[in-house]
Amino acid sequence: MPEFEPKIVAFCCRYCAYTAADLAGSMRLQYSPNIRVVEMPCSGTIEHGVLLNTFEKGVDGVYIAGCNLGDCHFLKGNVRAIKRVAAVKKILDEIGLGGDRLEFFHVPASEGTKFAKVANEMTERIRQLGPSPLNKSAAGNAQKEGGQTA
């Protein structure tokens, strides 16, 4: 049976993590191909509903990457994102999907290596957790291979 390849959405702030992704590319760094990057004007623009909808669409993991504390271009957007992520993690725990599938990371624009490290870390975490029960394609593949669905 082939190893489970997680599908992960990374909401990245354009002032830090998205720029760090560019830097990671310029540095020719290799990182997990499992992440799908979505550019955000600020991590603070993320909303509870968007995060839940992303999981509903069947992704296995989601993370928000924002600036270091004190470095937000809009002063406190990252602080707000951290609070919203905490609230949605609580909802995910309550409904049984598990808050571990969602995370917030600080990824400054100057740290391409950290962007790659976070992408690899999150991929490994989700791989350990297994496919999301809402991920129909992963469940289908597992069944075809005679594996168990989560």
Partner: peptide, 10 residues
């Protein structure tokens, strides 16, 4: 959305 996810899991 939370209810839909919860019920799929159940």
């Amino acid at each position: 959305s939370a209810m839909r996810i919860k019920r799929i899991l159940e």
